[in-house]
Amino acid sequence: MLKAKIIVRYKEGVDDPEGKTIKHALNLLGFEDVEDVKVAKYYEIKLSKGDENEVEEIIRKLLVNPVIHDYEVRVERI
């Protein structure tokens, strides 16, 4: 068994409207020192047989649009 932990985030320089909205909300809640919020998506994927190559293929075929996204991946044997 294999567990892949994948974080998909916007590339540097790509606008993050959700982050901006959350920053604004936090400022209104009194956290005036909040300067920036970035939002990312986190996936945990369990594979019964596959390897790192399959994880990369999953990321490339569905999880990421390389025009706007960077990703980080960590694979654990379980």
């Binding site: 606008d15 409207p17 959700e18 649009n65 390389p66």
Partner: peptide, 13 residues
């Protein structure tokens, strides 16, 4: 074979 552009979240969120 890879996307060359994106239609991403509206500026207004």
């Amino acid at each position: 074979d890879e996307p060359q552009a994106a239609l991403m979240v509206n500026d207004s969120n």
